[in-house]
Design a protein around this nucleic acid. Sequence first.
DNA 1: CACGTCTTGACAATGGTTTTCATTTTCTAC
DNA 2: GTAGAAAATGAAAACCATTGTCAAGACGTG
Lengths: 128, 128
Amino acid sequence: MPDAQRWQAGIRATRKRVLVLDVLLAQDRPITTKQVYDELSRRGQPIALTTAYRAVSSLVAAGLVHVFSQAGEATYRACGPTRHHHLICRDCGLVVEQEEEGRPDGFTVEAVYGICASCARGQQQAGS
Amino acid sequence: MPDAQRWQAGIRATRKRVLVLDVLLAQDRPITTKQVYDELSRRGQPIALTTAYRAVSSLVAAGLVHVFSQAGEATYRACGPTRHHHLICRDCGLVVEQEEEGRPDGFTVEAVYGICASCARGQQQAGS
DNA sequence: CACGTCTTGACAATGGTTTTCATTTTCTAC
DNA sequence: GTAGAAAATGAAAACCATTGTCAAGACGTG
């Protein structure tokens, strides 16, 4: 690894952080730090749990990943830098990105929690 | 307390639970269980922390209180039974109730997290 | 009043997350 | 390249919100 690889916010693109980001990019819904850790073990690229926690945290700081907090634990999801917010289903964890709409009251929406149409019908969406 | 006082869902309106609800009703933004506990101690009506946790949990089950999760911990707020959701400011904790609007995609909104106009301007709203 | 049930409190246990500190990587300068 | 400074990593311990356990107490009914 010759040159200095950096992302926004000046954080280094280290080997471990890249591995963590790879895992997050491969998911279609937010996952926990423990799940990132497990996935890397499964891939034969083990990482210390502590490091996994620090990695997701750095990625969030760099704006590459979004945090969600569901049921007492934080979940993470890789996200582009485009202005958007998310609809998160409390039941199945499904996440839908939405264009920024802008509200008359000046409130800047970051995340919208609720129940998606499928779950509302009781047809449990394919949960993780 | 002569008769059996009950709220919806068949939970009893016990002395402790009423105390906890009183504290929550007196707040203008969500607070943690520990804060409920501290406030009751200050009022000379001490409660076991365990009991405080169980009380807020019962009140949520009874539909009298809403839970929010901010920064890894749960916060609670007394709420009427009317259909509505909330706008919660991640910075100052301000909560604004909103009428149910109904979305074209069938998503049922429960909570909207973001930044309120004041905080966006950097004029930190009076935090707790 | 007496019994059965739900609630309370003290304490231990859990589980996600953070801290500490020594070691290793990575970046920049020479 | 190589040296030195700064940042990242790993292992273990520390933290802290929350939940479980169990005995004692309050409540409500018959």
